[in-house]
Design a protein around this nucleic acid. Sequence first.
DNA 1: CGTGTTTATGGCAGTCAGTGCCATTAATGA
DNA 2: TCATTAATGGCACTGACTGCCATAAACACG
Lengths: 183, 183
Amino acid sequence: MFRRHGVAETTGEQIAHAAGVSERTLWRLFRSKEACVEPLVSVSLDAFTEVLRSWPTSVELGEHLRAAYVVSPEDLRAVLAVVRMSRDEPGIRATWLVLHERAEPVFAAVLGERLGLPPDDPTVRVRAAAVNAALRVLTDDLAWAAGADPSVLEDTAAPVFDSHRERLAEELRALTELPARRL
Amino acid sequence: MFRRHGVAETTGEQIAHAAGVSERTLWRLFRSKEACVEPLVSVSLDAFTEVLRSWPTSVELGEHLRAAYVVSPEDLRAVLAVVRMSRDEPGIRATWLVLHERAEPVFAAVLGERLGLPPDDPTVRVRAAAVNAALRVLTDDLAWAAGADPSVLEDTAAPVFDSHRERLAEELRALTELPARRL
DNA sequence: CGTGTTTATGGCAGTCAGTGCCATTAATGA
DNA sequence: TCATTAATGGCACTGACTGCCATAAACACG
């Protein structure tokens, strides 16, 4: 509905009706209209989080990503639609950024363990935030590419998605191979 | 007012009255209640942007930062108060993140020139986002430290601020010294 | 100086997101 | 079977924000 008519033009009443619940219940489930897209975005973030969690010690992150980073085409379409909307809809942009930041502690936990540092170590959290930023920027790029040519999303194995994953692997390799210096 | 009574308890009418303008004018100047803190945050982001802009080619970023990254104590206090609030106030957190992201293109322009790459190159933008993330995480830490002991802000030369700048210099050195590999 | 034209501001009415409170019903558990 | 808790809805209400119009100040230009 957001995509079709825009966020401002979609009322909470319409959303609630379409979802088959009362408006009152809607506001209990989501604290704002924009927050209704959170489950869609979470799918993608959770997928990446799972990649990190299942990252074997012996493997370089880029390699692992190439093997394990998979999102179903339907989910991917939904996420990228949200990301594309976020260019014009400040509220959507804000939730996208907030959700991304919310994933950082998980990233920090994984990276901290790798580096032998506590997850709340500033260096670890900066690295986690950098990984997060790479994921955000490149997902944004993918959303743009998918907007220009929706056919790239008909299959997760589409070349554009491969190239996205490849870029991500490359950037993460660089970031995670950085030696952690103590301050 | 946000700090004293909380965001929810502060009405637009109160803000407008305190600012000496009508409520109608307030909504013309800021598109939301939370957006009213944007000028405060911008001061700090602009200061960092200026550091980047004035970064001499021959100097390593960490070094330049130590010399040029200065924010007046009053401004710093205001910014950190906002950042501290953002822990409990989701609306403030969102504006803080959005403002940070908005600064990224400038970072990308500077880094792109350094690396001899166009500012819209994905690698460049990932680096810019990483620099941005480092600034955000460490500013957040500083806000936390300042909240625990407000005396650290009585002078920009306070040890806690020095240590903040030092951490930032170290993290940025690592990030900006990364060789840029073409994909 | 006079006059037409932006530009900034306020007033007012209206919409709608979101909340508090209470009632109802469904699930759960002893 | 009954007591308790959790989930949902209805309703009234606050307040953020917008559209529209009026006013006045700043400005451009003859």
